[in-house]
Write a protein that binds this DNA or RNA. Structure first.
Lengths: 344, 344
DNA sequence: TTTTGGCACTCGGGTGTTCAGAGTGCCAAG
DNA sequence: CTTGGCACTCTGAACACCCGAGTGCCAAAA
């Protein structure tokens, strides 16, 4: 009742919903006559025309040219997603297929690879999956390997199965006994901790070693902390770029900036970064910060092994996409990946 | 002199060369008049027409429609590449830029990532770089880490900086002493060896351990051998897909199969697999086994840290590409990557 | 007050026609 | 063997045309 800019009655909303659905299906501007034929709103085309005029007035739809049908605007899609559509649950066979497809994965890389392909296939759009972030994971094991007298390799293994390694150039020769001590000291303290917590836990470690060994210990720790902090190691996997060819008719124009965006991991990461962890996020057209994606929509959600999300995934498609279906697929896949990660 | 199908005299070859060059530049069928204007072959258009007729007869060029200019066929490009063109060396500033761009790399991933981007930028086409193959590399170090009583992580580090890790589920509890013994045994024998040689060197290893430990040793070895043999871990990095938009006018048709091919690592690997190690390989249009790439050309070459190639790289572009320039860029980049790898 | 049928109007896109220009093949002369 | 001349072909751009889908508006009906 209270003061929305103007109140749209139920039938106008129904008309908007119908327009979105038809346009998504046919990819062509939809007119009043076609609308009443395909959906049984019990009114005449003339009435629908009046409603359309109102909807256009409010900026929910727009006509490309006089004497053409109407097309939803970004604002129209937004209303549709927020108020008029339900996320469409996957069917039982689809869920089985997802499960089956993901269950075969052998390691983290494989999980991510399968997930991204699955998502691309399911939605017939471009899929993006972020590797489980280091910051949310916990330490499973830290290993030190002497490669040369003053060269040590540091290996960090997380609970999500991710492995990071770094070379450490030590200030002096490193004895195997010191290395062993350091190894156990690190593991007893850090194992099971969240990565961001680790530096705090290891603060007093250098003090526990002989004066002579402290530079080495400090160097190793420094490298470890660096590795932990390194946000930019966030990796992303991509699939379904071939689906871009189904984007629209006006090709090179639409597709090129999108391809460019997809090549820039930074942009993709920022894109996913805008996702709310828990709820599904839908960014429609101009709502996307990066302007190359101004004619696309991004549907993304966090996924995680427990109740907490460790990374994000999503799909990128034309604004004219099947939102309920896409959202359903994204949600379902996110859930199953979470389960898989929790199991391993 | 001797029986080539028919001998093409020098002027006809010059005409073919001119046609290729013009067509690559303008992207439009080239006619006799335009040819004599732009290149100073000292003859009249009529003469050129006769030559063109001959060239067409032999299948080197073809006209899309009567009353249009000529376009080189795959066979024409082939002749051009084999006989009529020289690889164009990079200019000094270009070489400096390459050097500078690659020198900043910090690890193997970074080297590959920079290389592929550089190549894409230089050629304005799609670039593909294969990670240094495991089979050609040598062992730098093998590490064993006990993660749980019966769970060991195996880490393999190669001279090219590549790191592979595998989980090993052992038949029984593994003592730290056994592990240490095994570790040193593995390293003393395998370090410095070519990966394919390793199994042979480790044959009699189980016999050196206590009866009780042999199952464990065998299991670890089995996993190691598996890792060594695993060809399918061949990885590939890609860049420059946005350049696809400059392929041709008839968009979706050309671009879609290419995008699909690019998503299939298997296809790309097979593609690069057909490269001769040493010499530069150019596959033109239909010469490509995969039919999605029938209207593209692939220029590829091996690169390596020594005189031997450890992997391959290349670019994929329209058949109508600047072959001399592309080949020059590919060769130059391959050389510098080789140097970088040798240094590290 | 809302819905509806009627009606005049608009405009995109398909179809046809025309026309200029580029390019060709052929031929006879140099 | 090369060349100028010439008639011929064909594409593609420009233009006119018309059909039909779609609209907005209005007056009558509910």
């Amino acid at each position: 009742m209270a003061g929305e800019v103007r109140q749209l009655d139920d039938r106008k909303l129904a008309v908007l919903r119908a327009i979105v659905q038809d346009y998504v299906g046919t990819e062509e501007p939809v007119g009043s006559k076609a609308l009443v034929e395909r959906h049984n709103l019990g009114v005449s085309p003339a009435t629908v025309r009046n409603d359309m005029a109102a909807l256009e007035e409010e900026g929910y739809i727009h006509q490309p040219h006089t004497s053409a049908g109407r097309i939803p605007t970004d604002k129209g899609y937004r209303l549709f997603v927020d108020k008029l559509a339900e996320i469409k649950p996957m069917s039982a066979p689809e869920r089985r297929a997802i499960r089956h497809f993901l269950d075969g994965a052998v390691d983290l890389d494989d999980v991510v690879a399968r997930t991204v392909r699955l998502l691309a296939q399911l939605t017939r759009q471009v899929a993006v999956v972020q590797y489980p972030s280091l910051t949310r994971s916990t330490v499973r094991h830290i290993e030190l390997v002497a490669l040369a007298p003053a060269k040590v390799m540091l290996v960090l293994i997380t609970n999500t199965g991710r492995v990071e390694q770094r070379m450490v150039d030590c200030p002096g020769t490193v004895g195997e006994t010191v290395l062993a001590e350091l190894r156990t000291a690190l593991n007893t303290r850090a194992a099971g901790r969240r990565l961001p917590e680790v530096p705090g836990v290891l603060e007093e470690l250098p003090a526990m070693f002989e004066q002579a060994d402290r530079p080495t210990v400090s160097t190793v720790l420094a490298t470890l902390f660096e590795t932990l902090a390194e946000q930019n190691e966030e990796r992303i996997m991509l699939a379904g770029t071939a689906n871009l060819t189904r984007f629209g008719h006006d090709f090179p124009l639409t597709i090129q900036p999108v391809l460019e965006a997809l090549e820039e991991q930074v942009i993709l990461l920022r894109l996913l970064g805008e996702t709310n962890d828990a709820a599904m996020t839908v960014r429609i057209g101009r709502e996307n910060a990066y302007e190359g994606l101004n004619s696309t929509s991004v549907v993304s959600v966090g996924y995680g092994s427990g109740d907490e999300s460790v990374a994000k995934l999503g799909v990128i498609g034309p604004t004219r996409m099947d939102y309920p279906g896409t959202m359903g697929a994204v949600r379902a896949v996110a859930r199953y990946v979470g389960q898989i990660l929790a199991e391993s």
